[in-house]
Write a protein that binds this DNA or RNA. Structure first.
Length: 462
RNA sequence: GACCCUUUCAUCUAGUGGCCAAGGAUAUUACGUUUUCAACGUAAAAACAGAGGUUCAAAUCCUUUAAGGGUCGCCA
């Protein structure tokens, strides 16, 4: 069975790049009806926070990516890691290193000066003498000293790293706490991971983790290293490039399905297809098709996708989703009409909410430019006649088409173009020159409200 | 500095030696539709990083240059 995971460290919110990596992992698991596990990497007690962990979980909930099983916390597994450290020590596969931090720094500076890659020199690897006073040792693992550490990366291809590039790295700090590369390898193995999909900033951790796998006799999983997402200029994505926190997309009025559709196409594709439902993603996704190159983040396409998903969202659901944006129309008797008239001109829920407010609330003032243009000439007279016509209309006025008949009548009677009535009417009712079709708007408001707004406007024309 | 990865329109991408004088999508521009704004429709413009090879044939294979990114912690 395929088992994948997402393993964030709880030091901040869930990043948009992290969500894509998680999505790829989640899709891989769903595709083969496997499991997607969640592990919190909180071995660095100083930097963890409970809030960060909750924020990450909340973001997953919002996008609807559910993990299988219990969340695994590394901080609760220290005993387990300790056992493996002792085992390696006993087997002579790891050793205590008494090098002080000062000595280490000095060594690095020396190597830098010689323009070498900095690495631990293995001075305590075969140490049998008496340890120096006052130094709490760290535990280092014995990495191979010659040959290649090779693995096949599902994205990058075959990787061969010279053993000399990997030093005897620390697996337990002086205070006994295990380090990242050590615990990751153990947890991935123990949790039964078959496919590890992660950011390619971890590419160089892989040979280190393979050293651990080998020392402990664990089976090595498949690795997929996904290239980073950069900003539009190709630089590392930072806060100034816009929203990086996943939850910000919620407050900006994006639909989770739009965000996921956007992210899945960053570094992955299926021919010319752009729109993917969750089901299609699951059916079609294969991590082997992940692109090697990094991609640049650009909001335009997300906006387009969001508009698409808003347009196709059932109105009842949309009404619920609009509540946090200050629009409560769930009980509105013309709900369907109202949303049908507005949902095509809102790229985000924020914009859609604005459109709805424009209709639902009577204008307090009229856009100056629009009023100047629309309320001139015979506009007052036309509006007066139109209001009268609405009041005395002898057929019921319910549908947009009913109101359209009234429009047609006044246009015919007065021998004017639609613009002569359309523009002043629009400004009277909406306060501005833009928005949905007048027929629909009047049908939503009803005769009384429409007439009231027209009469109020007439009064201001003077 | 060392090691590793990457490079097709402004952006996401298709492309696995001949179907490519490079396709799709977004964004842009024009036109159409319309009582306005959108939406929609049609069209235009827009790319194989550079240089050398290999081959009958190269975006695709090789070499090299350049640019960008990553890693070099008792962080994760």
């Amino acid at each position: 069975m395929t088992v994948t995971r997402f393993a964030p460290s709880p030091t901040g919110y869930l990043h948009i790049g992290g969500l894509r990596t998680a999505l790829f992992s989640w899709l891989t698991a769903q595709h083969s009806k496997g499991e997607f596990l969640l592990r919190i990497e909180d071995t660095d007690m100083a930097r963890n926070s409970e809030e960060a962990k909750d924020a990450i979980l909340k973001a997953f909930e919002w996008v609807g990516m559910h993990h299988d099983g219990e969340v695994v916390y590394q901080s609760k597994r220290f005993e387990l890691y300790k056992q493996y450290i002792d085992q390696l020590l006993e087997e002579g596969k790891a050793y205590k290193c008494y090098m002080s931090k000062e000595e280490l720094t000095a060594l690095r500076e020396e190597q830098m000066a010689k323009k070498e890659r900095t690495r631990y020199d293995g001075r305590y690897r075969d140490f049998t003498g008496t340890p120096p006073e006052g130094v709490e040792p760290v535990i280092r693992i014995k990495a191979p000293q010659e040959g290649m550490i090779s693995f096949v990366d599902g994205v990058k291809g075959e990787m061969n790293i010279a053993a000399t590039e990997v030093d005897d790295f620390v697996i337990a700090r002086a205070d006994g706490a295990p380090t990242y590369n050590f615990v990751v390898a153990i947890d991935d193995a123990l949790m039964g991971l078959t496919d590890v999909i992660r950011g390619d900033d971890h590419l160089y951790n892989t040979p280190k983790q393979i050293v651990v796998y080998n020392a402990l006799g664990f089976k090595i999983p498949n690795f997929y290293h996904v290239a980073m997402i950069n900003n539009e200029q190709g630089k590392k994505l930072s806060k100034r490039d816009g929203a990086t926190d996943v939850m910000e997309y919620k407050t900006m009025g994006y639909l989770p399905e739009a965000l996921l559709n956007f992210l899945v196409r960053l570094g992955w594709s299926h021919g010319d297809q752009e729109i993917f439902s969750l089901e299609e993603m699951i059916a079609l996704f294969d991590p082997k098709n992940i692109n090697k190159s990094s991609s640049n983040y650009n909001l335009d396409k997300l906006l387009w996708l969001n508009a698409h998903y808003i347009k196709n969202k059932p109105n009842a659901e949309l009404a619920e989703m609009l509540k946090p944006f200050g629009v409560d129309i769930a009980g509105h008797d013309k709900l369907e009409m109202l949303l049908d008239a507005t949902k095509e001109r809102g790229k985000t829920l924020v914009e859609l909410a604005d459109q709805i407010k424009l209709i639902v609330t009577a204008p307090e003032s009229y856009d100056e430019k629009a009023a100047k243009k629309a309320f001139k000439g015979e506009a007052k007279e036309i509006l007066t006649d139109f209001a009268a016509m609405l009041k005395s209309w002898d057929k019921p006025l319910h549908l947009p088409s009913d109101y359209h008949e009234v429009m047609e009548k006044i246009v015919a009677e007065k021998e004017i173009g639609f613009g002569k009535i359309g523009m002043p009417l629009r400004v009277s009712v909406m306060g501005a020159m833009t928005g949905s079709g007048m027929d629909e708007i009047m049908a939503i408001l009803g005769v009384d409200e429409t007439v009231a707004r027209i009469e109020k406007a007439i009064a201001t024309i003077g």
